[in-house]
């Protein structure tokens, strides 16, 4: 379970361009479910996902993972925890150019010290499962958008985390590819993982994958009613 308690994020604090991207958000995310943040561009979805996944620290408030306050952890422990617990699929894929698909997928596992052989085997398995077996040695920059997104998913899964965070997973894809990605995400849900997405793509919400919608606007969570309805439906 992930809890956000009165979490705020202020960028450039104290400067003329100070900006509050997230304001006093309270949010509980249940394990094993699919939660989607929805809201217009600039509403703070990415910032909120970064806070949830420990990519950035809140300016105020606390983030708890399974009851443990992760905002207070040192960088080292926070990184270790993030590596083990969260898999990220970023808005812009964020693959490293010039490295092969396989190398990109293996990246999050390198600091774990897991035997190279095992990591490699797992990476190849994941790629095969996502229909990318033939692309393992391709340079990342030569991939199409749909392929890049699947590689990003494989990379998020390499350390077998319990929570997958996917920021706008369909934003660069056409409908057919979007459905393919949603099917993959559905499968992850089926494996018992917690899924947290952000999106403003109707396709995502119509797919039936999403069990709970969190409306974000101007850095605040709104529309508590629709949230509850959805929860009842899902339960």
């Amino acid at each position: 379970m992930i809890e956000l308690l009165a979490v705020s994020k202020v960028y450039n604090a104290g400067q003329p361009n100070e900006f509050s991207a997230v304001r006093a958000v309270d949010l509980v995310i249940e394990p094993g479910r699919v939660t989607a943040l929805s809201g217009p561009s600039g509403s703070g979805k990415t910032t909120l996902l970064s806070l949830i996944g420990g990519l950035t620290r809140p300016s105020a408030g606390r983030v708890r993972l399974n009851g443990r306050d992760i905002s207070a952890l040192s960088e080292r422990f926070l990184t270790e925890l993030r590596r083990a617990s969260f898999g990220f699929v970023f808005q812009q894929f964020q693959l490293i150019r010039g490295l092969s698909v396989l190398e990109n997928v293996m990246l999050p596992a390198l600091p774990t010290g897991r035997p190279h052989r095992l990591t490699r085997a797992r990476a190849l398995d994941l790629l095969a499962h996502l229909g990318l077996a033939a692309r393992a040695d391709t340079r990342a920059q030569w991939l199409s958008g749909g392929e890049a997104q699947r590689v990003a998913i494989a990379r998020a899964l390499i350390n077998d985390p319990g929570v997958i965070i996917a920021d706008e997973p369909t934003s660069h894809l056409d409908s057919a590819l979007s459905r393919q990605i949603l099917a993959i995400l559905g499968e992850l849900r089926g494996q018992g993982r917690t899924l947290i997405l952000s999106s403003h793509d109707p396709l995502v919400f119509e797919s039936g994958l999403v069990e709970r919608i969190v409306e974000v606007r101007d850095g605040r969570v709104v529309g508590a009613e629709s949230e509850k309805e959805k929860m009842k439906d899902g339960a």
Binding site: T79, R83, Q94, L95, L107, P111
Partner: peptide
């Protein structure tokens, strides 16, 4: 900028500063 971005990616996917 490319190298900075790459360092950001490494950190984001679970490398710490030391790594």
């Amino acid at each position: 900028a490319e190298e900075r971005r790459e360092i950001g990616i490494l950190k984001a996917v679970g490398w710490d500063t030391g790594d």
